[in-house]
């Protein structure tokens, strides 16, 4: 009897689970930037663009604003090539990024290893306080949270960051994990 009830429950739940998977699939898509630096699952509705800054090329995806409208959740993916001037190797780069700073109220978590596509990523979190909005008043202190993943690839590495205000970072945690799970370096 019990097994029949269980089976009935399972059969009822199956369409719901399929619907949920379908919905989540609809919310993300396989994103490849124009430079074809990498590909991974990213939220479909996030605004994407690539740019070149002083540290190299970076692909960005901008998500929703926080409630106060002062900070926007965002992904950034950089490729750090060994031939770039000022190149720092992976382990040292991670150590430097995780450096705490009491004056800036900056803290980081220990490094965890996670599978990212076919590679092993070093994953950690950073929090730091900032005034938001930054150039208008009145402004309040807010904590910015970053999930960081460093994925070695050949002689270089990818630096992936998901930034948001701390009150919302858990809302985007699944996006970050999905990105890592489906991450594929291209052309390396």
């Amino acid at each position: 009897m019990l097994s029949k009830i269980s089976l009935a429950l399972l059969l009822c739940a199956a369409p719901l689970m399929a619907q949920e998977a379908e919905e989540s699939q609809g919310k993300t898509h396989l994103y490849t930037p124009p430079s074809r630096m990498f590909s991974c699952e990213m939220p479909r509705s996030w605004q994407s663009f690539e740019e070149e800054d002083a540290l190299g090329s970076v692909a960005r995806l901008m998500g929703p604003n926080n409630q106060a409208g002062t900070f926007r959740a965002g992904f950034s993916v950089r490729w750090i090539d060994k031939d770039m001037p000022g190149f720092v190797e992976t382990k040292k780069a991670v150590e430097l990024a995780r450096r705490d700073d009491k004056a800036l109220d900056r803290h980081s978590t220990p490094v965890r290893l996670m599978r990212a596509g076919n590679a092993l990523a070093r994953v950690f979190e950073i929090t730091q306080k900032h005034q938001l909005p930054e150039e208008s008043l009145p402004s309040n202190e807010d904590v910015i949270h970053q999930d960081v993943a460093v994925i070695p690839s050949g002689a270089g590495y990818y630096w992936i960051t998901l930034s948001s205000t701390q009150d919302l970072y858990l809302d985007y945690r699944s996006n970050f994990l999905q990105c890592l799970k489906t991450f594929q370096p291209l052309g390396r």
Partner: peptide, 29 residues
């Protein structure tokens, strides 16, 4: 002073993070 000092130190010592913070706060506006 204050936030300007934080912002400069972030630029100097953690440039990737600085860049992300700048873009995300500008994007909100």
């Amino acid at each position: 002073q204050g936030e300007m000092k934080s912002s400069y130190r972030l630029w100097r010592d953690w440039p990737i993070e600085y860049r992300d913070w700048l873009v995300d706060s500008l994007a909100a506006a």
